[in-house]
Design a protein around this nucleic acid. Sequence first.
DNA 1: TATTGTTATACTCTATAACTATA
DNA 2: TATAGTTATAGAGTATAACAATA
Lengths: 147, 147
Amino acid sequence: MPTPVAKNSHAELSSALRPALLRVTRMLRNQRADQSLTLTHLSALAALRLNGPMSAGELASFEKVQPPSMTKILATLEGRGLVRRDVHPSDRRQAIIALTPQGDSLLDSERRSRDAWLNKRMAVLTDEERGVLAAAIPVLVKLADQQ
Amino acid sequence: MPTPVAKNSHAELSSALRPALLRVTRMLRNQRADQSLTLTHLSALAALRLNGPMSAGELASFEKVQPPSMTKILATLEGRGLVRRDVHPSDRRQAIIALTPQGDSLLDSERRSRDAWLNKRMAVLTDEERGVLAAAIPVLVKLADQQ
DNA sequence: TATTGTTATACTCTATAACTATA
DNA sequence: TATAGTTATAGAGTATAACAATA
């Protein structure tokens, strides 16, 4: 039986949520070994696919990292030809980042490979449990976007 | 409106889950600045509170890190007097790790402080959304424990 | 002056490989 | 031999501070 969590206690929810998220995220990062992209880089590409081209600052904010961290992530992605950097038409300070066709296609193949790995682990869950995870995603996103 | 997720597609669930977990975990780690313990160290203490004393290897496995990573985490915690290391009575290779009274009380105060911070962000969620998160915790734990 | 992004730097997090001690 | 844990080492992940360019 997994850890029980009282639904009417914020404090207990917060305390239980942190280590659960930390551990499952470690599990996801640990897949990296056999992948060509780290979770960090994959997530940045996915953000560009989801939102379309955006400035480096917007991407940093969306990904919940500081601007210098995004600079480094983008240097790697650009070096591999996965993203393109265009100057904003009316504000030359801004770098508008877009997926290249190579980035788009690597995102697809990386997702297929990672999904196959994760789906295998998801197979132990019931349909109801997978439904709970699916329902949790927009809530996690809303929470991450706080502040 | 948050990202919609089809509940009957494993692949889409996996693809959507990864970045959502990554981003919310970054948000949680970013609180570190004003805390005395990192999320990594807090989680290890919480694991000891939850499970009672356990070997270093069991703790590494529970926390989803490799043994050398746990060695390092424990060195810090022991250096601060938060955990104690006892030799296993019948197998002198094993180090049995236990919370000290100081570790126990620091875990409490750290949780209070972190919970206050997170609860403030949780306040934007509805009761139903918090219920969804609470329901997701055992599922995330079950998923993390796969493999 | 304020904002966008980068450079320089450092610390945290974590892993793999090789080793020691014990079983 | 096999297992538990540590040491040595390196790479990934990320932050703060200081800077440059532009607005």
